[in-house]
Design a protein around this nucleic acid. Sequence first.
DNA 1: GCAAAAGTGTTCTAGTTACACCCATGC
DNA 2: GCATGGGTGTAACTAGAACACTTTTGC
Lengths: 245, 245
Amino acid sequence: MMSAQAPEGYDKYAFEPFAVTVDLAVFTVRDGRLHVLLVERGQDPYAGAWALPGGFVLPRESAGQAARRELAEETGLSDEVVASLHLEQLRTYSDPDRDPRMRVVSVAYTALVPDLPEPRGGGDAAQARWLPVGSYDRLAFDHERILADARERIGAKLEYTCLATSFCPPEFTLGELRQVYETVWGTTLDRPNFRRKVLATPGFVEPVAGAARLTGGRGKPAALYRAGGATALHPPLLRPEGKPS
Amino acid sequence: MMSAQAPEGYDKYAFEPFAVTVDLAVFTVRDGRLHVLLVERGQDPYAGAWALPGGFVLPRESAGQAARRELAEETGLSDEVVASLHLEQLRTYSDPDRDPRMRVVSVAYTALVPDLPEPRGGGDAAQARWLPVGSYDRLAFDHERILADARERIGAKLEYTCLATSFCPPEFTLGELRQVYETVWGTTLDRPNFRRKVLATPGFVEPVAGAARLTGGRGKPAALYRAGGATALHPPLLRPEGKPS
DNA sequence: GCAAAAGTGTTCTAGTTACACCCATGC
DNA sequence: GCATGGGTGTAACTAGAACACTTTTGC
């Protein structure tokens, strides 16, 4: 924002121009692994490297609007679906040398989506793909850092919000919901305690009457639930501390 | 960040230029009230209104560096002191119409400082002043919103970090530390329980051997403490829920 | 029957809450 | 003395952790 100290008759073009972009860290859980949506760069710098999807903020849109627009373009999802997704501003990355070409300030966003069909190419040339986190060599620019920040953020968010249901299809079992936590946190959780905790939080999930589904091929069919209306998780569901998977 | 889909031979000046600024929400506790550092605007828009201090990000600095530079200018604190302060990126505000003059994207930062001497004018014309939160009519631009977000953030931060000591002078009593929590949260806390909680958290505070100080003019002199090395507060110190002051 | 996954019950304990109570100081 | 704020003690309550156990399915 212009402060009171800004020069009086300033000139819009007096400064070296800043480009403002958005970067998206979009996660999903597939086959019990955390996946992130990436695009392959076709040109230098970082030609051939994977990068987070993103793009310029247009002159008449906010960064949040730009993020939703880019997400719709990259995933091929309908506007209504994209509008209903949970998109959260992560933070802004502004190191002067983060892009060698020019001064680019990027507002990063995070989204959690259920396991989607492989994204169609969208309007752009480069194909967007879901890749397991850690399965790539190196990300372009400072995207490695952004992705790490995003992982940390969603891990923390699961503790005190009901956001985990965003990773799930419309109807899901408590086992699937638990797997979301275990995948994101890289831990195992006590099944009985997890169940009680979730059911004891009003509005976290609501049962689908009479419905049940087999999960692993064997075992007792699990009851189905839908996401409830609650967003906060009080008291929080804390991840175990020094506990590896 | 430039995505893989960015136009190839792009022109730095092809877009309407974005200005990138920082805004600062700097808090202190004075006389048991939460104060925020504000500057009075001398020119339109919002001439005469109070605004958060801030300014342009220079071509060769990051937003965080700009925030520290502006903070030093506004408060008149030495560079070493400013370098040691806790400055945290809050979020970025990018509504296209948030500044009527041009497109300004602002990265907001929050800082917590102990009760400082009234800031000297700094290099700039407008005087910066500490004002109790809520004691002004209206803030310029979307600064009301930024300030509200900043308050919420620091309130939450006190719950699970040891950051409250940033509001205190180098040596402080547990009563003063408790008052920080009560002021920011607008609640009262049980004194004995607060004391135990703080002392039971390793590294939150460390005693200053033998030192004591009278606080309210009356009463038993209180032992003095210094901030410890810990940053996280495990388990957290949760604010009471439906409890007014 | 056996393995696997869902679902229920129970015990133990750390952490918090809500108090009552004593101590040291200024007026 | 008495008001004021610092400091200690303690009983009740709550949420969570750990783990045994039952149920329902596929093979």
